[in-house]
Amino acid sequence: MHRSSRMKLLAGFLTIIALSVIVAGSNTANAQDVAVGQAKANVLAVLVVTAEQDLAFGDVMQGVPDAVASGSADAGWFKVAGAESKEVSMYLQLPDYLWNDSTTAGGASDEDRMVVAFKDNDLTIGILAASIAGTPGAGAITDLDPHNIAERALGATPNNELHLFLGGTVFPTVDQRTGVYSADIVFTAAYTGQ
């Protein structure tokens, strides 16, 4: 058989296997060895970042600071999953203010802001697949600085996951205008070895 035809046939087999895995409902996310006859290939799992939960201060009162600890069930929660033992660089872009933007009766834009702060111990990293906000689990690394996260290798768990739990504090002023205040937290992840 012509070599390119053989490769097409091989690709066909691989596609069938991939679809079979999906149909079977597999949740496998990690680097895998796929073998068909003599062909063997290693698949690098894609780097997946998930925002599992927003950092929730909820309703706050004028003049009363409100803190959420990184070990709290209200902590912000990002999950990183990828290939076994690969090292990941992580970076959090944190806001200084939450903004309230409303329109006055006259149609003009009227802005107010509320200070939000992140201390150098407001981050916890859970290494267990079962880590959830409020219960980071055994082996969790606490009191980390969210402004400066050291690189970490995936692979401490069978699912090759890291769970980042972020706390913070908002400082409403005594004359803080009522309404909804919001801001963005951007989490960036990249493999360091590429």
């Binding site: 309703d59 009522t178 909804v180 919001s182 990249a190």
Partner: peptide, 24 residues
């Protein structure tokens, strides 16, 4: 989803979690 203060005169907050994957 925009949060709604439980009290009409209250202050509510929301921090949007945005994810970024960096590919070389």
């Amino acid at each position: 989803s925009i949060p709604v203060p439980s009290d009409r005169e209250g202050i509510s907050t929301r921090l949007n979690m945005i994810m970024q994957t960096a590919i070389v």
